[in-house]
């Protein structure tokens, strides 16, 4: 008797919700990025769970694409953050308001 897929889906749902709350609540740009990673991880868990349920590896292949997109996103995002930090000496998203002026 193995663990039912529903439990994995519940865990993924909770982790995704925590990721959303983290993005909304935290102020440090790098920390916000880490919560985005948490959300992507939760989605990966859903992919793998449904792959097992369907009995194919298609869901696991999709995890690869999520991984590539996450890597590209992190590289570009951290580049932008370090560029902003060079000019504003802060990674607080409340202080990045150049477009408002």
């Amino acid at each position: 008797m193995s663990v039912a897929p529903g439990f994995y889906l519940v865990l993924a749902g909770l982790m995704f919700a925590i990721g959303v709350v983290g993005v909304l609540v935290r102020r440090n740009a790098i920390v916000i990025f880490m919560f985005v990673e948490l959300m992507l991880n939760a989605v990966n868990l859903i992919f793998v769970t449904f792959a097992r349920q369907q009995g194919t590896v298609d869901g696991q292949v999709l995890v690869f694409f999520v991984l590539v997109v996450a890597a590209a996103e992190v590289v570009v995002g951290l580049g932008i953050i370090s560029l902003i930090f060079r000019y504003r000496v802060s990674s607080n998203v409340d202080e990045i308001n150049l477009l408002k002026r």
Binding site: A4, P5, G6, L9, V10, A12, G13, L14, F16, A17, F50, Q53, Q54
Partner: peptide
Amino acid sequence: LVFVGVQGADLA
């Protein structure tokens, strides 16, 4: 999401 997870598992 928990609700959808429980329901979706039953569906699939």
